[in-house]
Write a protein that binds this DNA or RNA. Structure first.
Lengths: 169, 169
DNA sequence: TCTCGATTGACAGCATACTTACAATATGGA
DNA sequence: TCCATATTGTAAGTATGCTGTCAATCGAGA
């Protein structure tokens, strides 16, 4: 029975998974922003651009499902990307409510140019670990994120992206 | 069957460490908030309370170093904790600039009561993994966060907390 | 066809998380 | 002592990330 130490020490924080996930996310964003400084693009904006490129003509709601990103927040992200002329919003011919998203030439060029920086950032995040440990961590994290998908407020729904192609198939 | 895959697929996002860290952080916060719903306390507020309890009379700047939390953001966190009467701010006798932070009786009681919920939340985050994998993931993550400490905008400085006890040593 | 429930984008509001800037204060060296 | 420099809390501004709500619109069933 440790009588000298306080009933609750900082270990209750430092060793908690939630704290480590928060710290790691902070670090990951800091590294990403630093590597991509020249392009003034955030991780979320990058993920949005990649998704729109992969699914041209996707609407905002489906995009939010594809990157597991809150629908409300995504509105302002799209706004900023449109302001920077990286994407275009066009009214849907079939549905007056939705606006379809497309990459502009400028956005496609940016995406092409930024890839080396993004890859450098992703590599830097794991660099302190031994190569074998990097693989292990990524595998466990992929597994955990997948198995916990429904626990998040905005579960990933990758298959939603296909719906705008037609719902027959 | 859709057309051929685009030059950049969503894998560029889904398999990136940064994306996995962001997802896992989202999930962790969602689980924490859900488990602690009855107490209306966020993860950051919880970490702040534990730190103030461990280091009574700490000031805001040092607190930010102890939980690796941005100094500016911490201001509003402290404000909210004070508004809920969980902590008190008292002017420092020696330094007119700083305000010292103390847990109130109400705050101490809350901290005592919320612990089971917090532990349930932390357990739930890793629950989908096998016990051995949980240990591995935590160990690798702890290592990675520590080795990447300087990469974050607000590096953890746990030893800073001791300074308010006197700088003679 | 008409109406009810669901969907969509927009908005307001709260809580992190960061940047820069600023005034008040403290500290160390000339 | 005086002054340059540093620290502290605060604030404004930007960007996630979530909760609600709302009007417009759509779709399905009576």
């Amino acid at each position: 029975m440790p009588s000298k130490s306080a009933p609750i020490t900082m270990d209750a924080v430092y060793t908690a998974p939630g704290y480590l996930f928060r710290r790691m996310q902070q670090i990951a964003v800091a590294i990403f922003v630093e590597e991509c400084k020249a392009y003034d693009l955030t991780p979320v904006q990058y993920a949005s651009l990649v998704s729109i490129r992969t699914h041209p003509g996707i609407d905002a709601t489906r995009l939010s499902a594809v990157i597991a990103f809150d629908r409300s927040t995504l509105g302002s992200v799209i706004e900023r990307l449109e302001a920077k002329a990286y994407i275009e919003r066009k009214p849907s011919p079939g549905d007056k409510r939705t606006k379809l998203l497309y990459l502009t030439k400028c956005g496609a060029a940016l995406l092409h140019d930024i890839i080396p920086s993004v890859e450098r950032a992703q590599a830097r995040m794991l660099q302190p670990l031994k190569p074998a440990d990097r693989k292990t961590l990524l595998a466990l994290l992929t597994q955990l994120v997948d198995l916990n998908n429904e626990a998040s407020r905005v579960p990933l729904r990758a298959e939603d992206a296909l719906e705008h192609l037609g719902k027959s198939g």
